[in-house]
Simulated scan of single mutants.
Amino acid sequence: MSTFRAYMVEQDGHAHRAGVRELTLDQLPEGEVLIRVRYSGVNYKDGICSQPASRLVTRYPMVLGIDLAGEVVESRDARFRPGDPVICTSYDLGTGHFGGFSEYARVPADWVVPLPDGLSLRDAMVLGTAGFTAALSLYRMEQNGVSPAMGAMLVTGATGGVGATGIAIAKRAGYRVVASTRKDEAAEWLKTLGADDVVRPDALLLQEGESYLNVQARYAGVIDPVSGKYVPHLLQRLEYGGVIAISGYTGGPDFTASVFPFLRRQAAIIGIDSVWLDMETRREIWRRLAGPWKPSDEALSHIGHDITLDDLDSALKQILSGRMKGRAVVNL
């Protein structure tokens, strides 16, 4: 092998270029583990990184892709040996360190997670950062007392990566799942993932005169990658002790809420960040995704669809415009 292919963005002044490039191993950044990448997932964060002068990319040129799964080719760390199947997600991958949209990647050993039994490399990237984020949301909620016995789990932005995987994961964890989407045509698809009911986002808004005093509590928790104006309304629909786990802001970063749901219903909002999560928790989340929380084979087949590096321009535009359904998996 003299060269390999990777999807790279370059920024030179006002000139922005993105596309598939030929690279050599010498061009990869430092790291103890060289990985032959087999799959990488397309995430909303990748879409943001693909934009000119993205605030998330810390240096150029940059190979995008915030997650990857593949086999170890070389390792200077005793924890990993050639042939080991591994996962790498988050940290600076695809933002400050060459990422997963590449046939090869060299990364720090401390970022690498052994592929747990129960997941294939492709399964891991059908879930990917989005599924990991959804599972971390559920994990943090359950640490705060949420359980299936409390009530239903609401999943916002249901057709996106976090939403689609969140539905399947919450269903496997034993929850009655309510999916929220504007896309009426996606209702049957969401039910194949495990949704018991599908609602439009506007149905979550309180009407004039409604408040936590007279509105029916409906949800034990919310897996919420949308945020924005819906948060104060969702707070007032939580069961006592309910939790909203916010992992994104496709609906906007700001909201104004009353303190009363926090005081009267012991409601909570938890922020979810998978980027700098400690390795012990990271491994625990992947263990659950490979075991008790692993979506059914049918759900995984409906969530993920394969694309190639040459399809990335289109896929990144799709995810930014909200037209992506489920997860695009880059098959390398």
Rank of each mutant, 00 (worst) to 15 (best):
T3F: 12
G13S: 10
A15K: 10
G19A: 13
V20Y: 07
R21Y: 14
V33Q: 00
L34G: 02
R36H: 14
S40D: 06
N43C: 10
R55Q: 14
L56F: 15
T58E: 15
P61G: 10
L64W: 05
S75W: 10
S75R: 06
R76P: 04
R76N: 13
R79N: 09
P82K: 04
V86T: 03
T89A: 06
T95P: 01
T95Y: 02
G100V: 08
S102P: 04
E103Y: 08
Y104I: 12
P108W: 05
D110Q: 07
L115M: 12
L115D: 09
L119Q: 07
L119E: 11
L121A: 10
L127C: 06
G131C: 09
F132R: 00
A135E: 04
M141L: 09
G145P: 01
M153H: 01
V155Q: 03
G160V: 04
G161C: 10
T165N: 14
I167T: 01
I169H: 03
I169S: 03
A170I: 11
K171N: 04
Y175H: 10
L190Q: 02
T192V: 14
G194H: 02
A195P: 00
V198H: 00
V198W: 03
V199A: 04
A203Y: 03
G209R: 12
S211N: 15
G221L: 08
K229E: 11
L234M: 11
R237Y: 07
G242K: 01
G248Q: 09
G248L: 08
Y249K: 08
P253I: 11
I270S: 00
V275N: 02
M279N: 09
P292L: 03
L300P: 02
H302F: 15
T308Y: 02
L309W: 06
D313C: 12
Q318R: 14
